Amino acid sequence: MHPSLPVRIYRPHAPRTGSAGLPCLLYLHGGGFTVGSLDGVDEVCRLFSIHAGCVVVSVDYRLAPEHPYPAAIDDTRAAHGWLIENAAALGIDGHRIAVGGDSAGGSLAAALCLDLRSRGLPQPALQILVYPAVDDSFARPSWTEFADAPLMGTADAQWFRRQYVGDDGVAPSSLLTPLQAPTLAGLAPAHIITAEVDCLRDDAEAYAHRLEMEGVPVLHRRYPGVYHGFFTETGTFAKATEAVADACASLRNVFTDRALPS
């Protein structure tokens, strides 16, 4: 891992089970690839560690525009590789590592699964994608319906995208727009969270549908009455607490070799 890439590690009170180490969640914060920090997801990471009984490694990946695409993906790949290589020293079971993130972090989590598949490496135990940014067409109905939604509207999302890829864009890549990947077969099981009032909603739900159609186990839940960014506001929205609890249930299931909850 790049020596200047900070991570924050959370450990549950639960002891190890046997000698294999604890399961782990690699978490990537949101912020349009441009803002956001470890502090912004601190409470969520604590809740994941406590209620899923796992180590959580939160990654402070580099941000645009100073570090445009593919810097954030490179950092995500490096952090995951470091976890795998150092699992025993960290008290982690290298066979039970999940990946997750919200918004831009959800995009990076999805991209990591695609990247691992392309390199012939094992998939994570689960991918938790919280209203992930997975396309750049801005064409589905929610982009119009919720163009002026609270916290982030369509113009905001487009501005963030420009900071990440530049005004001239970059060569197409499924690591940048996972929904445009030729196939999603063989990827990790997915727990996908969407908000009702969110311009990204339809893209994320199209991704959930494609995963399911291509044979990937998927649990998708849309939370009514909330908007983009709700997931990390556990002290404000009851739906945030519910959504985090649902994601923890999925983690507990996959970490004990069970199917996703129905």
Results as ranks from 00 to 15, higher is better:
53 G>E: 15
47 L>W: 03
70 P>A: 00
29 H>D: 04
25 L>D: 09
71 A>S: 15
23 P>A: 12
42 D>K: 03
73 I>C: 13
25 L>W: 11
43 E>T: 15
33 F>H: 15
43 E>W: 01
37 S>E: 12
30 G>M: 05
78 A>G: 09
49 S>M: 04
58 S>P: 02
36 G>C: 10
25 L>M: 08
69 Y>I: 14
71 A>M: 05
48 F>Y: 15
23 P>Y: 11
69 Y>R: 01
63 L>K: 08
39 D>V: 13
32 G>A: 14
33 F>Q: 13
29 H>C: 06
40 G>P: 04
48 F>H: 13
59 V>D: 01
62 R>K: 05
26 L>E: 09
33 F>K: 10
78 A>L: 14
36 G>H: 10
71 A>W: 02
45 C>A: 07
45 C>T: 02
70 P>K: 01
28 L>F: 07
24 C>I: 13
66 E>W: 02
27 Y>I: 03
61 Y>F: 12
50 I>Q: 15
50 I>S: 11
66 E>S: 04
37 S>G: 09
49 S>T: 03
52 A>T: 06
57 V>K: 01
76 T>C: 13
79 A>F: 10
41 V>G: 00
74 D>P: 03
25 L>Y: 07
41 V>W: 01
58 S>C: 09
64 A>G: 08
30 G>N: 05
28 L>S: 07
36 G>D: 14
52 A>F: 14
58 S>T: 01
55 V>M: 04
61 Y>V: 06
27 Y>S: 00
25 L>P: 07
57 V>L: 05
34 T>F: 11
32 G>E: 14
67 H>N: 15
29 H>T: 01
72 A>I: 08
66 E>N: 08
73 I>L: 14
31 G>F: 07
56 V>I: 10
36 G>P: 14
50 I>E: 15
57 V>C: 12
35 V>L: 12
58 S>V: 05
65 P>C: 11
39 D>Q: 14
75 D>Q: 09
48 F>T: 10
35 V>N: 05
62 R>N: 01
49 S>Q: 04
74 D>S: 12
70 P>N: 04
25 L>H: 06
57 V>M: 02
51 H>P: 01
30 G>E: 05
59 V>W: 03
28 L>H: 00
45 C>L: 03
28 L>C: 03
73 I>M: 15
74 D>A: 08
46 R>S: 12
32 G>H: 10
64 A>W: 04
67 H>C: 09
61 Y>H: 12
59 V>G: 06
52 A>C: 11
66 E>I: 05
62 R>C: 07
45 C>S: 06
26 L>K: 00
26 L>R: 01
65 P>V: 06
24 C>F: 09
41 V>H: 11
34 T>Q: 12
54 C>W: 02
59 V>I: 12
58 S>N: 13
42 D>Y: 05
26 L>P: 03
24 C>D: 08
70 P>F: 02
79 A>I: 12
41 V>P: 01
55 V>K: 02
37 S>V: 09
32 G>N: 15
76 T>D: 02
61 Y>D: 06
45 C>E: 00
42 D>V: 09
57 V>E: 07
58 S>K: 00
28 L>R: 07
38 L>Y: 05
51 H>M: 12
76 T>S: 09
48 F>W: 07
33 F>D: 05
78 A>I: 06
76 T>F: 09
30 G>Y: 03
71 A>Y: 05
66 E>T: 11
68 P>V: 08
62 R>I: 06
33 F>Y: 15
43 E>I: 13
77 R>L: 13
72 A>Q: 08
